[in-house]
Design a protein around this nucleic acid. Structure first.
Lengths: 193, 193
DNA sequence: ATTATCTATAGATCTATAGATAATGC
DNA sequence: ATTATCTATAGATCTATAGATAATGC
């Protein structure tokens, strides 16, 4: 009962915060406005979230779920190329309409990964790492670099692509992600078909 | 005389801000401490820099100069591989000891590039774009993607590599940048030697 | 009775701006 | 005289925390 109440308030604060972020920008908005929309005191915001960035990190975590599901939904022997296509599609679907928030989300993510808490659960990283390993065993990848490293490069690459897309959104997120992935795979294959 | 005075104060505020940023973190530090170290009023900080991020953007701009010089110092017919090596070296030299600041610098850069001011001078982007174009004419690159696009991908790639390096600095920045560039070139060549 | 959730609020810090000072232009 | 640089400070907003309330555990 208490748990339910807390989660309900937390979600209300969370959704209100994202609304206000989209309207006024993350750094420009006032916590008071978020609290007012959620019909709680300003203190309640800080009870649930230490900073504005923590709201964005929760959004980032929610965005990981569909990507992880897209990976695990595929048979284990799926060619890596198809796995990466699925990742791109899931990423694009979730973030395509968050152009305004994405720079701040990334900034928050950076602070998170650079901090000590980076050792927390990273479901997408783990799931994708497994697929890269299997692909390497099937001979789909150049053996020059370890599959773990390649997997991390791929994710960093996609992140960078989304930044590039923010600066110049005309191309559309699916096209940008697809282009970068193609380039990456060419390099990772290292001459192999 | 007035100009000289202003620039001197501005530089003192700039250097003090970076010192305090490194000591207390960007979001954690107080403007008062910066102003006190620079021996000016807090208002003087805001006179020269609208926000803390603007100080970081100035650092980013200063970091572009040595990279641009490293590019233009090479003969025009230098192989692209050598150009990228020079870029990596200049990047690593400037940022290697800024591990603490780099996540915040990137975050500031994102806000800049996502904003309307993104149309400002981007000397590195221009200089590197020229080299990619010349390399394409010499047949060093796959003709699948336009050289401009490849050039932007390379920069985004290096940015992503520096993020990855922040999360896991054990490898050392030159190694990480070199690895990513190698991977990129393999892909950009598209099977060509 | 104890604890988790949230409110109310004091004190810290920031942002915006009116005004002081000294250099510049005429 | 006018303008650019900087200071002083009022008002806005945030952060930290003491205390109220209501659910939980015994």
């Amino acid at each position: 009962m208490r748990d339910k109440q807390r989660e309900e308030t937390r979600r209300r604060v969370y959704r209100s915060a994202l609304e206000i972020f989209r309207r006024d920008g993350v750094s420009g908005c006032r916590i008071d406005d978020i609290a007012q929309k959620a019909e709680v005191s300003r203190g309640a915001f800080y009870f649930h979230f230490a900073t504005k960035d923590d709201v964005l990190i929760e959004l980032l975590r929610e965005g990981e779920a569909p990507v992880e599901e897209a990976i695990t939904a595929l048979p284990e022997d799926t060619k890596l190329e198809k796995v990466l296509e699925a990742v791109d599609e899931a990423l694009a679907k979730f973030w395509e309409n968050e152009l305004t928030l994405w720079p701040d989300v990334t900034a928050g993510a950076l602070r998170l990964y650079a901090s000590a808490d980076a050792r927390e659960v990273q479901p997408v990283r783990a799931a994708l790492g497994r697929r890269f390993k299997m692909a390497a065993e099937r001979g789909e990848l150049s053996p020059v670099l370890p599959p773990d490293t390649l997997s991390d490069f791929f994710l960093a690459n996609s992140l960078a692509a989304m930044l590039a897309w923010c600066a110049n959104p005309a191309l559309g997120l699916p096209v940008v992600l697809g282009g970068v992935s193609h380039l990456f795979l060419e390099g990772a294959r290292g001459g192999k078909s």
